[in-house]
Design a binder for these strands. Structure first.
Lengths: 197, 197
DNA sequence: ATTGACTGAACGATCGTTCGCTCATATTCA
DNA sequence: TGAATATGAGCGAACGATCGTTCAGTCAAT
């Protein structure tokens, strides 16, 4: 890669990070291009050399999240026992969702996705990656006789992911923290949901 | 009530309903006061005779939701057996959340609440009413020996409410509907979560 | 005679985006 | 290799549109 292309990519990332910071603080629609430019230490006009428009910036952030999710899913070892894998998946994804960035952006993306199909597709794509990985763990557990054979794997996976994503948001709204007790309570619910009757 | 006060209140409701319709279509921050005024068949200036500002309009909608939630909670008969009451609560609240208005507004309020403390307080108030009612049902079930005594009533109640609220949103994003199968799957998860081991 | 619902033009601020411009770097050619 | 050319990152003023809000004025109900 040439030196020019390197600095361009670095700048691109700087802009994305500035945009994330702004969106977290103020939300998509309350953040202006001038806010992002100012935070990134760049002119307004230059934003448009790196991104077609504001929507492209939002999409780039969603794409960055896809990378993070794919890395996480790839790191969940498929060799472990299913019950241990389920625990590891929940703990790992909860750790991701507990980041302040995630808390706000998840809520922000969700509300945007409900109305904006383009964002909705990107959002749904991330969810599908997670859902499939978790459903595979559940399937493995059912085959091993660990989990309830009557379990609807896909629906259960989607429900568990929702539970994990919502815990930090809920805690944030109640003004509290997600301590070890709450994490363990969540894990208990998940285990109970998967366990055979 | 005088005739004047009557028409004023009717007008106030018309404005709120117009605002809801706009917010559902476009979201809080993409909806202008002119959009609301136009939809309500009223001048922009007149909006400010009924509501201090845009935030007051949003708050009024949240207050309307509080009424709906309180009515629902009051209607859940405390005489029923706890397991039947749990079913009824879930089905009833799911029916509320399945309304298109709820789907979008729930997501919209959640993302707004994360950042805006005033809205967050209103939002959290509605959640608390629901949480307490459901926690009471769980408590009754535990006392009757129907539910798991080790259950964290509050945390379980909050989790169940999240599950119910998220099912319609998730289905909407996936482009599908919430049929009887999905509703029943959700109910199964809830029962499993409450059941004693 | 007084009140207050109602109108719509107007205000200043801010929005996303464009555009003419400069300048450092990369590429091409003598 | 050195000079000429092409490229695109970067700037910031300016554009038209739209934002939430105000206000002087009208008119029907009290």
């Amino acid at each position: 890669m040439t030196k020019r292309a390197e600095t361009t990519e670095r700048r691109r990332l700087e802009i994305i990070e500035a945009a994330i910071a702004c969106f977290v603080e103020a939300g998509f629609h309350q953040t202006g291009m001038r806010d992002i430019a100012g935070r990134a230490g760049v002119s307004v006009g230059n934003l448009y050399n790196h991104f077609m428009d504001k929507a492209a910036l939002i999409a780039a952030i969603a794409a960055l999240e896809t990378d993070q999710v794919e890395d996480f899913v790839a790191a969940t070892a498929p060799g472990d026992a299913a019950d241990a894998a389920l625990d590891a998946f929940c703990r790992g994804y909860l750790a991701i969702c507990l980041q302040p960035v995630s808390i706000v952006l998840t809520a922000e993306f969700a509300s945007e996705a409900v109305r904006n199909p383009a964002i909705g597709a990107l959002f749904e794509r991330n969810r599908r990656i997670l859902r499939r990985a978790l459903a595979a763990i559940l399937e493995r557990g059912v085959r091993a006789g660990l989990f309830d054979p009557a379990l609807d794997r896909d629906e259960a996976a989607a429900t568990i992911i929702d539970m994990i994503e919502n815990l930090p948001i809920r805690a944030h709204l109640q003004g509290g923290e997600v301590g070890a007790d709450r994490s363990e309570a969540l894990l208990g619910f998940v285990r109970k949901l998967a366990r055979r009757p």
